[in-house]
Amino acid sequence: MRMFIGILICSILTENFVLAKFLGICPFLGVSKKLNTAAGMSIAVTFVMVLATAVTYPLFAYLLVPNGLDYLQTLVFILVIAALVQLVEIILKKFIPPLYEALGIYLPLITTNCAVLGVTILNFTKEYTYAQSIVNSLGSGLGFMLAMILFAGVRERLDSCDCPKFLKGLPITLIAAAIVSLSFTGFSGLADRFF
């Protein structure tokens, strides 16, 4: 139990996907303009991350590794994740239309998101067990959500500040992202010390 909490804290704070590992920067900059779209996107990402891990882990451990096909990891994972998201979309549309409408465009958008692929691959690099992998994916998704929601707040404030013309738009957004990322390095060592 202690270890699971450690993994969770680690993946949310010290090894935050966006702010420490720099994965999933595209949605981080693209959909963080408003708080509600940022929340919608991160819920979809968390959902797909957990689901993708649940499916790709047994596939890799019981199909690819015994056949000596570790090198096909990236290829197979992209294929499986893309198909999986499509399937989830069809199922949601049929059985849970409100959730389908809430996730909306974000669900198909993240089929080839590098954060989703990243979490499935990193689970093996870190040699996690199945349960640990699921917890790590959940934590990574929550970390993504934390970063998105924090940054959506920052960007809403950025809109009403008078910044020099040459920094307006993307430049000032990137500078703000760098500062937020820098502040997250303050968490490094947190998980090692307590768990």
Binding site: L59, L63, L64, N67, G68, L69, L72, L75, V76, L79, V80, A83, Q86, L87, I90, I91, K93, K94
Partner: peptide
């Protein structure tokens, strides 16, 4: 080795394709 790799990836693709097309027919709204 190459054959096994091709078979496995193609097999996964085929299975995914069949499941998806079956789902889109069976679960169509």
């Amino acid at each position: 080795e190459v054959l096994i790799a091709v078979c496995i990836v193609a097999g996964i693709g085929l299975i995914a394709g069949i499941i998806l097309s079956a789902a889109s027919v069976a679960l169509s709204v």
